[in-house]
Nucleic acid binder design. Structure first.
Lengths: 241, 241
DNA sequence: GACAGGTTAGCTGTATGCAGCTTACCAGTG
DNA sequence: CACTGGTAAGCTGCATACAGCTAACCTGTC
């Protein structure tokens, strides 16, 4: 889970990869395209790759123990999200969405949240409840001692949990897509905000747990909407929109 | 526009492509990945490729005058739509969405339609009006003498026109994605329905023209919603949902 | 004639070499 | 010292050969 040896070079510091920096060269097992795709997206969401970072096909290929082809395939499959951009002769860079695009993403997320409970929601199971309470416990721990990485991880898992309650497969796919598009921005904002965001997260988790206990799937979307709106305001402040 | 020599083999008839059937071998100019991607999607929407058809990378590569690599890239970039499926050793086939998936697509489309006028719509220009009136004229001509291909083409262009009035780029992308996902199904239904659908299309175009003349961007989404609902009912009848 | 098993054709997945394009770097000149 | 021009390194885009897999076909047998 805690993969700390991302194959990446940040911004300016072009320090000529001298082969084995942190990557245990032959230690990685072969991954297929789907796994690579998932991993790359996760690294973008979790800020292991930040806007401006350069994703080099050859280096990723070495890390994953495959050739450039599967890596290229994975990059192509996530290209439609607008989070990476490949330019011939230059490289493939992670791009941050423009202020306008962020606004568009959030505007749509606010509207889609209301649909979560409307379009064939999945009734939460005890597993869902347990997962939520686990996240709440972790959030409480973090309240004592803030960690941006932990906050990001909890937020990430929470989103996956919410998505698993969306019965409409198309809506779920869009929900996940919008999350991915917003995640990098929001997490960078949350980093700068510090512990303040934890309280909001705890409030949200408490609301969600309460709704799940009542079996009130309808409310989950609206709780999400509140949380998204909260994040939107913070994002707007930082970006001066 | 009227490209009638699609590189494709339908269903069973595996008639051993003997090189030059209808494809002017070297006549095609080189296309880049984006163009190939656009063309493939259009062919799926316009029923040049129907569910069950096999898209062979090598054959497409020959048609477009490139190697398999750009074709594979294009296929990868549209794979997230769920309209094609590649299986090792078998081939890449066009897949029709399941009944449930169609339902999900239409349920979301109905909701998104209401947002068209809500999230930063673009005020229609005289160009939009002219385009709509052109489509209406073509629809009236088709009323005399029905042509499934013409109906499909008009519907296709209309959708692009509507999309061009969506200011929120994210919403526009989703709108286009949902159209592509629904297009193949709806157009196959429309084929079987025959001339009946033309009257509905004319009604819709008249409503849209009226709204555009009033400068009523808000209404466009709701007119779309009515039209989508009309199609949904027909689709449900055919698919017995 | 029906059926079982091997064989073969053909497809996608992968690896790899080459071409084209950018950019950083460095030497030469004012 | 500032600036310009050339050069080289490195990246993605593309082409191609090969490996692995699947399914259809054909032959031999009962």
């Amino acid at each position: 889970m805690a993969n700390c040896c991302a194959s990446i070079e940040s911004g300016k510091g072009r320090h000529e990869d001298g082969e084995p920096i942190g990557t245990n060269a032959a230690g990685e097992q072969k991954m297929d395209v789907a796994a690579i795709q998932h991993l790359l997206l996760e690294r973008i969401c979790l800020l292991k790759y930040k806007p401006g970072d350069q994703l080099k096909e050859a280096k990723l290929a070495r890390e994953f123990g495959v050739s450039r082809t599967p890596v290229r395939d994975a990059l192509n499959r996530i290209s439609h999200l607008g989070l990476i951009e490949s330019r011939n002769g230059v490289g493939t860079v992670v791009v941050g969405l423009s202020g306008e695009q962020i606004q568009h993403v959030y505007d749509v997320r606010l509207e889609l949240a209301c649909l979560l409970g409307k379009l064939s929601p999945i009734t939460p199971t005890p597993d869902h409840l347990n997962a939520l309470e686990d996240l709440l416990a972790r959030a409480h721990i973090m309240r004592e001692r803030f960690s941006a990485d932990d906050y990001i991880a909890i937020n990430h898992e929470l989103n996956a949990l919410i998505a698993s309650m969306i019965g409409n497969t198309i809506l779920r796919a869009m929900w996940l897509q919008l999350y991915v598009q917003a995640a990098s921005t929001w997490h960078r904002v949350a980093e700068t905000m510090g512990p303040d965001v934890v309280d909001a997260l705890i409030d949200e988790l408490n609301d969600l747990i309460s709704a799940v206990k009542r079996g009130d799937a309808e409310s989950i979307g609206h709780i999400q909407r509140v949380h998204i709106s909260y994040g939107y305001i913070k994002v707007k402040t930082v970006f001066g929109i």
